[in-house]
Amino acid sequence: MSPVADVFEIIRLSDQVWFLFATLAVVGGAGAAFSRNLVYSAFALLAALFGVAALFAWLSADYLAITQLIVYVGGILVLFLFAVMLTNRITEVEGSNPIVGYKPAAAVSLGVFGMLAYVAVSTDWKTLPVTSRFETTAPIGDMLLSTYLLPFEILSVVILGALVGAVVMARKEMKN
């Protein structure tokens, strides 16, 4: 048996799926970070958001995965694409996403990544024994209306104010 097939027999199927989703998220993130075309950047962000939603589902956070898809992919990403199309002339889409000062930025982000990865790998995390899947949607609803009622209400007012403010700022001024 070839070594490659051997490795695939040892890794559990769920872990193989995890690596697939993680690759999707990282490739999407890298595309969003390095693409010179803003439209490609936005679509790479779409791949990254799908990957993160799949990882939520992998962690049996089904409600969060669906929320991620509806709010991010259905809402925020469409908003980004609207903003791209409203602020760039179609002929200028090529090279519409120039970068500046990539050397210090690469140093900073590599430093941040090194520090976070070192902490993540070297710490002896006290993990729980693996639990079986359980329902999340109904308990989240209960928690939002009991333990986390105050932040939930504040957040409702915040997003209402934000959306009204966005409409006020984005509309064209009426000239008399």
Binding site: V26, G29, V52, N97, V100, S109, V112, V121
Partner: peptide
């Protein structure tokens, strides 16, 4: 945690370099 660190670093790089 490693994956999240990677995504965080990519996001930082994007914020710092985009014009």
């Amino acid at each position: 945690l490693f994956l999240a660190a990677l995504l965080f670093a990519l996001g930082t790089y994007t914020v710092l370099t985009r014009r």
